[in-house]
Design a protein around this nucleic acid. Sequence first.
DNA 1: TTTTAGCACTCGACGGATAGGAGTGCTAAT
DNA 2: ATTAGCACTCCTATCCGTCGAGTGCTAAAA
Lengths: 335, 335
Amino acid sequence: MILSAIVDDYIRSAEPVGSRSISKRGDVGFSPATIRNEMSDLEELGFLEQPHTSAGRIPSHKGYRYYVDHLLRTGLLSNQDVHMLKGVLAERITEIEQMIQQVAIILSNLTNYTSIVLGPEVFSTTLKQVQLVPLGDNRAVALIITNTGHVENKIVTIPEGLSVSEIERTVAILNARLTGVPLLQLKAKLYNEIASEIGKHVSNYEEIVKTIDGAISSDDSDNRLFFGGTTNMLNQPEFRDVEKVKSLLDLLDQTDPWMKLFANAQDGIQVRIGTENSVEAINNCSLITATYSLQGKTIGTIGILGPTRMEYGKVIGLLDHFSKDLTTILNRWYK
Amino acid sequence: MILSAIVDDYIRSAEPVGSRSISKRGDVGFSPATIRNEMSDLEELGFLEQPHTSAGRIPSHKGYRYYVDHLLRTGLLSNQDVHMLKGVLAERITEIEQMIQQVAIILSNLTNYTSIVLGPEVFSTTLKQVQLVPLGDNRAVALIITNTGHVENKIVTIPEGLSVSEIERTVAILNARLTGVPLLQLKAKLYNEIASEIGKHVSNYEEIVKTIDGAISSDDSDNRLFFGGTTNMLNQPEFRDVEKVKSLLDLLDQTDPWMKLFANAQDGIQVRIGTENSVEAINNCSLITATYSLQGKTIGTIGILGPTRMEYGKVIGLLDHFSKDLTTILNRWYK
DNA sequence: TTTTAGCACTCGACGGATAGGAGTGCTAAT
DNA sequence: ATTAGCACTCCTATCCGTCGAGTGCTAAAA
């Protein structure tokens, strides 16, 4: 009970909390002296730490962990929040990416922290259709359409001396053989199986295979990561130091670290506190993530990054609600 | 000569410069006392200011302006820089936007300031071709291809009860009548001229005009602005205060202010110092811009944002070189 | 045995005082 | 016209004393 009170207080004030202020709150019916004794014990057990002698206590990582695992009462969403959520998700949006970006913005607005949203994962996204649209000048637009409704276009140069019927046949083969194949496997499949088949129908197939290769090697791996409210972090007192701001912003500019952080995401809500995050720049932050899915398969992650001193209850409640709503909407949409 | 020395020194050290340190530099052959007299005069004329009595002087906005207009010797690019530049621009890139983004990154790396690049302007970009690619399910991908080589795709829902030939006819009309029209005028033209013509050939033309409208109203106005090295600013001593960092970063998140700042860009290099920028958050910054063009028409802007205390000579030289190279390459490419 | 009151002690934050130094402005000499 | 010299100003850093929040311990109370 005392640990819970300390964490709550610290989350609100960002300052070491002393025995007297706990006692005065009313929900703990003990005198400061008693609380002091307990706090001393809690410190010995590793749940609290003291910035210096004769200062109040602040929760340690272990303390936060215990708080999250055992003491937390997940906050219910306010009506206002739910209403806002409904409004956004109800909008008819044609592309999944637009929606994802919207989600990132809303999340950061509601929490005042930074949100990170990972769009549909490449390895569960499959090819739905390939289209080639001629532009003249030996150029064409290759359209790669995925099962998540995303359309990607790429300009390709068509090899010399290829007849229209040859091109049509090639596209037909691609569609027949590659539909339903995960994007990540396209390349392997192209070389292992399709290339030879194309060779049967088309003359200089080496050139054309190379062209296809260029078209399908997607370069949008970094388009899948969206951030919202990056400057919200600057409001937190733990980022009053410009050096820390810089290292965080530099991190937000990169893609790789986030992929690693999100890679081992299990289904459901996950809370990683401080050094539990493998990236050093956010060792005094906590990252809470939730997954969303399509047709029973997890396809993406939404997350909130805040200081370790973040409002776990509220954020967990929000992410839980959000991820479920997102899943529902996506599934209804793609039926 | 003395003003020049003071500005140079201040740019390097970021600290008020005194008479003694100027005298010691050697290139001004006077004693501190003489320099003091001159400095006093310069202050009276408004070129210098004193943070407080008995501190050194720093250049005022007027001082910077005079320095830039009359005293500046544009720094030549180092061989290294030129080489790096060539390397990037030589790469064969299929989309103009990729190149623009590359440019932003390189600029910020070379200068250690923040770069802002405005891609091909909507009002000089014209439509080259419209294509409709059916997806099944009453859905299709509309492709909008511009003269700058950019392809945009949008998913549209085709109104019920429209025959294939009707659709084909509609697209043919669009291509015949809209090719060469600036993107910004598409909408007006659609309603004023095309709608009635479509009406002659197609039954429920209201629905289809609405669909076309949805497809051509581009939402990528914010895709045209690229930033590079946003965190570079944090290295500058004038941004040791988190509040300033926040107001700058908030500004970088927006699009509108930059459009306004870039709107009245004339051809060639333009230097705007401090409060000459209409946006308050960058009143202690300078913005240097240069334009690039295609077929003689200015189509975009590249710029560097730094503290007023920025290395004008180096940056101006770099931007000049860069914008010319960019123009050359673009023109060669689109011939 | 648990809880509480009392008290001495610690340590950081805040404020005033002081010394040092960089730089100026003025005057008189060169 | 330039320079040396000197008094003066004002910022910065440092030291020191005070204040207050908070602890830890001991002894008394429940």
